[in-house]
């Protein structure tokens, strides 16, 4: 009898756990949908900012005067910084370990002399387990992040870069490919690499390319515009470049954050879904045991009674 009672207790506790995982799954699904929406909304800005940058850079290059400190490559890489976006909470499957492993691997490819800025609590293990120096740690805004949330980080890394504290800065984030697939990625954000056409952040695949009708401009402005310098810039190219570059870095960080959020929520959703179905299986199995135990108890009771009756009859 005690046996069947214990099984019943376990069934009850697993059923309760199942309710929790089911609820978490649903919450994660709702958050994921919102995060995906947010990602799509930032794409326009990111694409346009990137295209503008390319336009200005090409124009300046032709004049031979492209030497902005945020674009220029440095000859030697002494120290690197990685901005790692992880989650604040666990229970999201392999989400955190995937991005951390990817970041650690990329360091091994580059240099050992790297430091981290963490967005999200779970990235801490890069310091604890792997012994890398963590310069700063920020809480990740989980729901409805605003650009203002990452502005401080963007400013910090730009300042550090300009002050030559680091020679390269990377962003480690998880790209949201689909609800079933999230890909950890490392992306260089400083120096801004204008040659690398970015497929994932910034100019995304299907972006409308800026087309300029050269004939049209010649006809219209003729002498004023030199070959290759198709835009008029106000106040001038460098001024525009100066204000667009920090924005671009902000928007890249922001997009990385949104992609990571979408990935985290969908990873959590998948993990919780698995947990729920595992709980279901367990409950089924335990119910079977419970019934068997109950049956056994009844059978032995009947056997005892009939044995007792047999003794009385004889």
């Amino acid at each position: 009898m005690t046996n069947s009672k214990e099984i019943k207790k376990r069934i009850k506790s697993i059923t309760n756990t199942k309710k929790i995982t089911k609820a978490m799954e649903m919450v994660a699904a709702a958050k994921m949908r919102r995060s995906i929406d947010a990602v799509l909304k930032t794409r326009t800005y990111a694409n346009l900012a990137w295209e503008t940058l390319i336009n200005i850079a090409t124009s300046l290059k032709k004049q031979g005067s492209l030497n902005h400190p945020l674009i220029e490559k440095r000859d030697k890489t002494n120290k690197e910084l990685i901005v790692l976006i992880s989650s604040n909470r666990g229970l999201c499957g392999g989400f955190n370990s995937a991005i951390i492993n990817k970041a650690i691997k990329s360091i091994k490819l580059h240099s050992k002399n790297s430091e981290f800025i963490l967005i999200g609590k779970r990235g801490e293990s890069v310091g604890r387990r792997y012994g890398y120096n963590i310069v700063a740690q920020y809480e990740k805004p989980d729901t409805n992040p605003k650009v203002a949330d990452i502005q401080a980080i963007a400013k910090e890394i730009i300042d550090d870069y300009v002050a030559k504290k680091y020679d390269k800065i990377f962003l480690a984030y998880t790209d949201f490919a689909s609800t079933a697939k999230q890909v950890p990625r490392i992306r260089q954000i400083l120096p801004v690499d204008i040659e690398a056409e970015d497929k994932y952040l910034g100019a995304t695949g299907k972006s409308e390319k800026i087309k300029i009708d050269k004939e049209y401009i010649k006809e219209k402005e003729g002498k004023h515009l030199l070959e290759g310098q198709l835009f008029k810039y106000e106040p001038d190219e460098n001024e525009v470049l100066n204000s667009i570059l920090p924005r671009l870095i902000e928007v890249q960080l922001f997009q990385g954050l949104l992609e990571s959020n979408a990935s985290e929520h969908s990873a959590r959703m998948a993990a919780m879904h698995q947990a729920t179905s595992a709980a279901n299986d367990l409950v089924d199995e335990l119910t079977l045991y419970y019934n068997k135990a109950r049956q056994a108890a009844i059978t032995s009771e009947i056997a005892e009674i009939s044995a007792g009756a047999a003794i009385l009859n004889s």
């Binding site: 503008t52 200005i56 402005e221 106040p235």
Partner: peptide
Amino acid sequence: TSGEITVLPNHIPLIST
């Protein structure tokens, strides 16, 4: 930044802060 401007269709290509 250098003053208010009004842009009409067929303006020449321009980038300004």
